[in-house]
Design a protein around this nucleic acid. Structure first.
Length: 598
RNA sequence: GGUCUAGUAGCUCAGGGGAUAGAGCAACAGCCUUCUAAGCUGUGGGUCGCUGGUUCGAUUCCAGCCUGGAUCACCA
C-alpha cells in the first residue's frame, strides 16, 4: 500500500513510457495536493512534460489522465484544468491507506533507517552566573525537539549539555556573595539557587559600575577605570586562585555552582527537557591544547613571534584565527576543539549538531573548517543549528534595562493564564485539584512551546508576552483542544458500545471531507522528514495545525456519533482516532504534552 | 568596509519554479435545546523591499541595490 505520491509517481513514469516511449526524469514529475477549489485528490503539473509529449499541456494532461485511469485501479477519475491534471483516487484506496496507518505503530516515522547516523546534539549550554531566560527557552525547545525529530527519522541521538561553569563571570557572583552575602543560601533566602546567584552577579555589576563612575569623576578615562576598578581586580584575583586550585575558592565555587544546578534542574524539569550527558567546561577546557599543539607540529597551525598559535583561513575567505594565547592559556575555540574531541571519543558520532544562537555563526564556521583540516571525519557533518534572537515588542532584551524575560517567570505566567481561562470555561469540573493543575500546566507550557517552535529557527522572532498568551488560532492549546475533543468522542462511543479496535466496515464510501483528512494524515511522514532534513521543528508545527484545521471542518460538517449508519459512525471514529494519534506523535516531537481532556 | 542573514496583509508568522499568494490576531457579520463554542462560517485587508536576469511560467532561483539584524577581539 503505497502513498499517493509514490503510486501516481510510478504510474506517471509508466504512462510516459507507454505513450511517448521515453524515460522521464523523476524531477519532472511534480505532484501536489489538489487545491480545494478543484475536484481531485492529487495533481500532476504537466508543463514539464510537454517537451516529451510535444503536445499542448491540455492534450498531454488529458491523454495521460485517461491512461492512468485505465492502468491504475486506484485512480477513479481525473479532470484537466489548464496544465494541471487532477486525479481522484478510489474510496477503496483511501480505506486501505487508513487501515494500514492504523496498524502501523510507527506511522509517520522511520523505524529502521538504513542510513541511520549517530548524532550528538549539544543544546542549552548555559553559563552558571545567571538564571535561564527567554533566549535559552528557544534554545532548549529547539534542541530537544530536534532530537526527537531526528529519532523519529531513525537516527541515534545523544543529547548533551555543555555547562560553562568556569571563568570570570562566576567569580563575579562569588565575590559579591563573599562581600555582601552574609553567608546566605538558597534555603535561607527562600530563593531558587540560580536566581540567588544571578542576584549576586547583578549586585557585582552595580557596585562595579559605581566604582568606575567614581574613578572617572576623579579624572580617569572610562577605559582605564574599567580595568583599574578594585572590584574587577579582586574578581580576577579570584579567578587566578581558582585556576591555582585554592581550596577555599574551589569550595565556594562548587557550592555556588551546586545551587545553580539545583535551580537549573527545576527549570529543565518544568520545561520538560532532558540530557543524556552533561559536560562541564571546567573539566574540558584544558584538553583542546593538546590538539592545537599537534596541529602545530603538523603545520596546520602556525606560531607568531609572541608565542600565540593561529590558523590562517584567508584562503577560505576568512581571517586568521587565534587558537592559543601567547601565555599558553586557552580561548573559546581551543575549548570547543577539545570538547568536540572528547565527544568523539565518547560517542564516535557521525554528525555533530550545535544548537547555538546566530551571533556565533562565524565561530562555528571557523570551528568546522578547523575540524576538517584536522581530519575529523564527522567534521563535514558538523552543523550549527543557528537560531535568531528573541526580541520583545520594545526591542531587544537588555539585562541592563531589566527587560530580560526570565524563563521560570514566563512559564509560571503561562500556566497561571491557562488556569484562569480554564476556570472561566469550567470544563474540568469533577477533576481533582492535582489533575486540574497538571492540565493547566500542560496547556500553559503547550502555548509557550508551540509559539516559539512554530517560527523558523533561523529567523529573529518577536515575543509579545501579552499577545503570545493566546489560546485561539494557530496555537498549542488549539491543537490540544482538538485532541481532547476526539478523545472525549471516543470515550462517548465506547460508552455506547462502539469500539474502534476491530476497524471498520469496508463498504462505506469515503466523502470529500474524509479524503482531505486522509491525505493530510499521510503528509505527516513528509513533514517529519522535512523537519529532519531542514532542522526545522516548525515544519511539524505547521503540519499539525493544518491537520487540526482540516479535522475541525470535518467535525463541524459531519455528525459523527449521531449518524444513523453505524458503519459510517465507525469509519469516522477510526479516522478521528487516527487524527488524534498523529496529533499526539507530532506534538511529542515538539516536546508538547496533550491532555486527554481540557 | 568584509562576511552571513532576513524583508510576504495593520500586527505575528506560513509557503517556496506552477492554478486566483495563505493562516492567526485585530475589525465587522452570523452559528451553542444537537458528539467540548479554547470551535465553525462569512466580509474587508497584498506592487510578496526595489531593479534587472534565467524560464513556457518568478513572490520563490541568480545578480545588483535599499532597509533591518548578526559578526569580523589574546571575551565566552
Amino acid at each position: 500500500m503505497s502513498k499517493p505520491e509514490l503510486l501516481i509517481g510510478a504510474g506517471v513514469q509508466n504512462t510516459v513510457r507507454a505513450l511517448y516511449s521515453q524515460e522521464v526524469d523523476s524531477k519532472l514529475i511534480q505532484l501536489q495536493k489538489t487545491r480545494k477549489e478543484f475536484v481531485g485528490d492529487i495533481t500532476l503539473v504537466v508543463f514539464p512534460l510537454v517537451k516529451i509529449s510535444k503536445k499542448s499541456p491540455e492534450q498531454t494532461a488529458a491523454e495521460m489522465g485517461a491512461w492512468l485511469k485505465d492502468t491504475i485501479p486506484e485512480v477513479s477519475d481525473f479532470n484537466v484544468v489548464k496544465g494541471f491534471l487532477n486525479i481522484s483516487l478510489s474510496s477503496n484506496y483511501w480505506k486501505l491507506l487508513l487501515m494500514n496507518a492504523r496498524m502501523n505503530p510507527f506511522f509517520g516515522t522511520i523505524n529502521k533507517n538504513e542510513n541511520a547516523r549517530t548524532v550528538v546534539i549539544e543544546y542549552s549550554s548555559p553559563n552558571t552566573n545567571k538564571p535561564l531566560h527567554l533566549g535559552h527557552i528557544r534554545n532548549n525547545l529547539l534542541g530537544f525537539s530536534l532530537a526527537k525529530i531526528l529519532k523519529a527519522n531513525g537516527h541515534k541521538v545523544v543529547m548533551v549539555n555543555l555547562v560553562n561553569d568556569r571563568g570570570i563571570h562566576i567569580c563575579k557572583s562569588m565575590l559579591a556573595w563573599q562581600k555582601w552575602g552574609n553567608q546566605t543560601t538558597p534555603i535561607k533566602a527562600g530563593k531558587k539557587g540560580d536566581h540567588l546567584v544571578g542576584d549576586f552577579y547583578v549586585m557585582f555589576d552595580k557596585e562595579y559600575k559605581k566604582e568606575i563612575a567614581e574613578l572617572v569623576a576623579g579624572g580617569m578615562t572610562k577605559e582605564i577605570a574599567e580595568k583599574e576598578a578594585p572590584l574587577i581586580k579582586e574578581a580576577q584575583e579570584l579567578l587566578r586562585k581558582w585556576e591555582a586550585n585554592d581550596a577555599d575558592t574551589v569550595g565556594l565555587w562548587k557550592n555556588m555552582n551546586g545551587w545553580v544546578y539545583e535551580g537549573f534542574d527545576v527549570t529543565y524539569k518544568t520545561m520538560g527537557v532532558i540530557f543524556d550527558k552533561i559536560y562541564y567546561e571546567s573539566e574540558t577546557y584544558l584538553s583542546g591544547k593538546e590538539i592545537v599543539q599537534k596541529g602545530l607540529t603538523d603545520n596546520i597551525f602556525f606560531r607568531k613571534e609572541d608565542g600565540s598559535i593561529w590558523i590562517d583561513l584567508t584562503s577560505d575567505g576568512l581571517d586568521q584565527k587565534l587558537l592559543l594565547r601567547g601565555d599558553g592559556t586557552s580561548v573559546y575555540m581551543t575549548q570547543d576543539i577539545g570538547t568536540a574531541n572528547l565527544r568523539y571519543a565518547d560517542y564516535k558520532m557521525d554528525e555533530m549538531i550545535y544548537v547555538v544562537g546566530n551571533e556565533q555563526n562565524y565561530h562555528f564556521q571557523v570551528l568546522k573548517l578547523i575540524m576538517q583540516k584536522l581530519g575529523y571525519k564527522w567534521a563535514d557533518l558538523l552543523y550549527h543549528m543557528s537560531y535568531g534572537m528573541v526580541e520583545l515588542p520594545e526591542g531587544k532584551m537588555k539585562s541592563r534595562e531589566g527587560t530580560v524575560v526570565d524563563a521560570d517567570d514566563l512559564m509560571h505566567e503561562m500556566i497561571d493564564t491557562s488556569r484562569q481561562m480554564s476556570v472561566e470555561l469550567g470544563k474540568l469540573d469533577g477533576y481533582s485539584d492535582v489533575e486540574k493543575e497538571n492540565i493547566y500546566r500542560i496547556i500553559g507550557l503547550g502555548a509557550l512551546k508551540y509559539f516559539i517552535l512554530k517560527v523558523d529557527p533561523k529567523k529573529n522572532m518577536t515575543f509579545d508576552p501579552k499577545e503570545s498568551i493566546d489560546f485561539n488560532g494557530n496555537t498549542g492549546p488549539f491543537i490540544q483542544y482538538t485532541h481532547a475533543r476526539i478523545r472525549s468522542l471516543l470515550l462517548k462511543a465506547a460508552e455506547q458500545g462502539i469500539t474502534t479496535s476491530n476497524g471498520f466496515n469496508a463498504k462505506v464510501a469515503v466523502n470529500q471531507c474524509e479524503r482531505e483528512l486522509l491525505i493530510t494524515i499521510q503528509d505527516f511522514a513528509t513533514a517529519v522528514i522535512d523537519a529532519g532534513t531542514n532542522f526545522n521543528p516548525g515544519a511539524i508545527a505547521n503540519y499539525t495545525y493544518e491537520l487540526v484545521k482540516v479535522y475541525n471542518q470535518f467535525y463541524q460538517e459531519n455528525q459523527i456519533l449521531k449518524h444513523e449508519d453505524k458503519d459510517i459512525v465507525l469509519f469516522r471514529l477510526c479516522v478521528s482516532e487516527m487524527v488524534a494519534n498523529v496529533i499526539r506523535s507530532a506534538m511529542d516531537m515538539l516536546g508538547i504534552e496533550v491532555p486527554e481532556r481540557m
